[in-house]
Amino acid sequence: MSGGAAGYAPAAISIEHVDKSFGANQVLSGISLEVAPHEVICLIGASGSGKSTLLRCINLLEPIDAGRISLLGHPVTGGNIDQNLVRRQVGIVFQSFNLFPHMTVLRNVTLAPTKALRMPRADAEQQARELLTRFGLQDKQHEYPDRLSGGQQQRVAIVRALAMQPQIMLLDEVTSALDPELVAEVLDLIRELASGGMTMLIATHEMSFARDIANRVCFLEEGRIIEDAPPARLFSSPQDDRTKRFLRRIVEAGRL
């Protein structure tokens, strides 16, 4: 794994006082967050609290208005940044999969390695098959995405991001668009990634999953991190009134 002695390794993700607005709507206000290598952090909060925007800003899909973001010790905001180089280190998976519908599963997974990393096609396909096999998708490699279930599509989307051998994975509500019975297979995959030491920042509505997998859980509201604590503490004895209110609503909805 990357990095030297744990104490000296730079933060995998370092976010300092980041602001982001869409027009008059301020989505992130002064967010700061550090993610250590191999750490798994879950972002929880209501829809519109800024979780997705934060992930998209880290992947440079959205420009930030103020503040700094560094990845693996290198600043990625400000001028003179090769966005494509940054994105190759940071995989992101979306709620809506965004698989390429006109390509087979295998081609979906090999496109970026062959075109962006100039990996020879045979090597890329070899790697893709290994990843697909590891996550139980080997018999789907020649299918088109519309022939797969939602859960299978999302697992392919995660494999597609992993094929770039990223240092960091950002998961944006990856189970929110799935039928309830398909959620487990995707969560199992993420658990396996976590146990393999992948650094992950996960926006999720699955509270029990967050409690189970995260090293830390951050509760966001109105573009601010209200509370940042290990899951045991955040879920059983939240400090802030807003966190308590949010968790109470979740419990009432039967989701915790």
Binding site: L61, R87, I92, A116, R160, M164
Partner: peptide, 11 residues
Amino acid sequence: SQVAGARSLGL
């Protein structure tokens, strides 16, 4: 979202 999907992979 297809653009986002492609660009997010570093293409």
